[in-house]
Design a protein around this nucleic acid. Sequence first.
DNA 1: GTATTAATGCAACTTACTTGCATTATAATC
DNA 2: GATTATAATGCAAGTAAGTTGCATTAATAC
Lengths: 137, 137
Amino acid sequence: MIKSHINNLQSKGFRITSARSAIINLLESTPHPITANSIHKLLKKVGTDVNITTVYREIEFLLSQKIINKIQLFDTELHYEMADRTHHHHIVCTDCKAIEDLKIDSEKDLLDEVCSDTRYKISTHSLTFYGVCPACK
Amino acid sequence: MIKSHINNLQSKGFRITSARSAIINLLESTPHPITANSIHKLLKKVGTDVNITTVYREIEFLLSQKIINKIQLFDTELHYEMADRTHHHHIVCTDCKAIEDLKIDSEKDLLDEVCSDTRYKISTHSLTFYGVCPACK
DNA sequence: GTATTAATGCAACTTACTTGCATTATAATC
DNA sequence: GATTATAATGCAAGTAAGTTGCATTAATAC
Ligand SMILES: [Mn+2]
Ligand SMILES: [Mn+2]
Ligand SMILES: [Zn+2]
Ligand SMILES: [Zn+2]
């Protein structure tokens, strides 16, 4: 039996507030990265009307616990998604701004090439595609 | 004989100001993307003490003329580099913040895969590696 | 040299996010 | 269930990067 994030946090001694569980639930049920502002608005819709500062602070906390990942797109706002999903990247519609997950098979070759070509100790990478989605074409 | 950016802009009827030519010269001689703030400081050092607003406006102009590219790294500030360099990506040292160009041969396979896997009309992509550079290891 | 208007400087504004501090609420202990 | 310690919260103020309005300056055409 796998432990939920909430149970995990609780057993680590962190308090389970309504904001905390609502944000985790929201991100778990959202299949694409979302911004602090969207989190704030969506929480309000669900009846968890928490201050935007609390949203930012909770994001900081969930990042520190490695429960979520920060995603920098070609946008003014940062996006966040659950960290326990399998490694993937994103494709963004420049028209309707939709963000979709993207699994890339040939990625390994790329990483191998960069690792052998540079003298860097590579820790992460970011790969995002931009274009027009089927609906907007 | 190939026309310089300055000559090109002049023949298109744009004025050649000291800020304009200094920024083009600076970006041409900088082998990595730099921020508006760095441009501002470096211009001052060279004796072209222009207002930061002018730097931002000149960046807008050079972007609109497709003379420079905007680069979004995992950072609070945007970076810019000359657009006439051959297609490449970047590797960033998470320690000393150095940014280096990165040419990737296996990139074509990646693009082909994404093009055939998605129904998107892809226009651009962004690919950046993060790690520790040889000097910082 | 004069005229036209692109480019500039400065101040004020905006947006995304952060910080300080007084208050509230979670959860452990009694 | 009440008491307590302190994590989490709300609100106001602050910050940093970038933008905008407007009066002034300067590049180029004539
Ligand atoms: Mn995703
Ligand atoms: Mn480059
Ligand atoms: Zn779309
Ligand atoms: Zn380094």
